[in-house]
Design a protein around this nucleic acid. Structure first.
Length: 427
DNA sequence: TATCCACAGGAAACTTCGGCGG
DNA sequence: CCGCCGAAGTTTCCTGTGGATA
């Protein structure tokens, strides 16, 4: 296409005329909340039953909700929360629901501050009472706690606190936050607090103080993974609105459902697959989405998330990964943490970067393992010690591509590569 | 069969940083 | 401006350990 054509047609025109696939793509994003949540009626009813007393200004039981990612936990709780606030409005009782994600807000201080802020935001709509501003950092924690109590006492009513990904909070900062929050009711006179914890990890209660656990899990609700037919229903519900009629081959939805069900019964994954399949079909101006697009989408999602997470890695982690790539290139498909450490030290010295200690590097290696970039296992070689065996489980090409976006490492790699070539010539 | 390598990984202290009240 | 606070990253110190070798 020539420049002239581009200007006359508009650079984006070709993307606009082709709407053979999508009618409304937003519906396939996980942030979109459909009116009904298929196959979650029992769970929704249970939550509603537990929360119902708050409409009579009574304290509801705390709830602990378990289930893996993409099983509809957050969507269901949000749905019930919205309905509760709605019903409270009709009955003239104050029911407020605040929702916070503990993966982002993961310390006692920030949890308390965020709850206070959210409660004030809700209240600000009805009254213009002066607002206290709790800074995001700086105060002693007990002062924030006291301030939160003040705010709650002033507004009264029932407050439902939804702690999403509560397991992350416990793992990062212990159960002190939860202990304080579950105890807050005994310090309050004019208002009541109910906590709904949402956890991805079934075993996270191991880390909890028994008192906290018994208080928090007065009610427990489990969200099982979706099976393939259920995922088909979920996808169909959204696909009808999201896609142009007839733009999906018959096998597409069952395939997306089957692939996602194989993984973890994850609705989020299924929706991503369907959306990306559509985007791929759209991009190549196909008339319809076929099974082939779904397979592509499956691959694309995997490599994209890998590229994303590697490129956002801190410099030190990149250098560690780079050292591992170098080892891999000189035909060591499996190597030990000690070898990585020696090479890492060499590289940081040559780049005049600070060299982290062994202890820290083992943590960085573990992080890389958790991200799925490498796989590690601890093995014992008897007399020759105990170590961590490291290997790449996929091709390293794409990892090289991402790592080579760092200019310092590119330069280092070139000189290192030349040395290796020279070494080969002499051999 | 006791030894002992070469690490793993827990605990806690330490460093650095930015925000904030006084 | 100072000193205090928490957060994040790092260091220091430490204990634990599977199994080939003497």
């Amino acid at each position: 296409m020539t420049d002239e054509m581009n200007t006359s047609m508009g650079l984006f025109k070709k993307y606009l005329v082709n709407n053979k696939i999508f009618r409304n793509r937003e519906i396939l994003r996980h942030s979109y909340r459909p009116q009904t949540l298929p196959h979650r009626t029992p769970q929704i009813d249970s939550i509603a039953a537990v929360l119902a007393p708050s409409l009579h200004n009574e304290t509801p039981s705390n709830i602990l909700i378990y289930g893996k990612t993409g099983t509809g936990k957050t969507a269901s709780v949000r749905y019930v929360g919205a309905e509760l606030e709605n019903a409270g409005g009709h009955l003239n009782t104050t029911c407020r629901v605040v929702h916070l994600n503990c993966e982002v807000i993961d310390t006692q201080y920030r949890v308390l501050a965020q709850i206070a802020k959210l409660v004030e935001n809700v209240d600000a709509m009805s009254s213009d009472r002066t607002r206290t501003h709790i800074p995001m950092t700086g105060w002693p924690t007990d002062q924030v706690y006291a301030e939160l109590k003040n705010i709650l006492e002033n507004s009264g009513g029932v407050l439902v606190i939804i702690l999403d990904e509560i397991d992350k909070l416990v793992k990062k900062s212990g159960d002190e936050t939860l202990y304080n929050l579950t105890r807050i009711n005994s310090d309050l006179e004019r208002s009541k607090v109910c906590i709904i914890g949402i956890s991805n990890d079934l075993r996270f209660t191991d880390f909890l103080d028994p008192r906290v656990l018994s208080s928090l899990s007065e009610e427990e609700i489990v969200f099982p993974p979706y099976n393939a037919p259920q995922l088909v229903d979920i996808l169909k519900q959204r696909a009808d609105e999201a896609f142009v009629p007839g733009a999906l081959h018959e096998g597409v939805i069952p395939l997306c459902a089957a692939l996602a069900a194989q993984e973890h019964g994850d609705a989020r994954r299924a929706l991503d697959l369907l959306r990306v399949s559509g985007e791929l079909a759209d991009r190549e101006s196909a008339d319809a989405v076929t099974e082939k697009h779904v397979r592509w989408a499956q691959e694309k999602i995997e490599t994209d998330s890998m590229v994303e997470c590697i490129s956002t890695l801190p410099t030190q982690s990149k250098v560690v990964l780079y050292a591992m790539l170098l080892l891999h290139r000189i035909n060591q498909k499996i190597f030990t943490s000690g070898e990585v450490m020696r090479l890492y030290r060499e590289v940081t010295r040559e780049l005049s970067l600070e060299t982290l200690t062994h202890r820290r590097v083992t943590d960085l290696i573990s992080e890389l393992n958790m991200l799925g970039v490498i796989s590690t296992r601890v093995i014992s070689r008897g007399r020759y010690g105990r170590t961590k065996e490291i290997s790449f489980d996929v091709t390293t090409d794409r990892i090289w591509d991402v790592i080579m976006k760092d200019p310092r490492l590119v330069e280092h790699n070139i000189s290192r590569f030349n040395e290796e070539q020279a070494g080969k010539l002499f051999r």
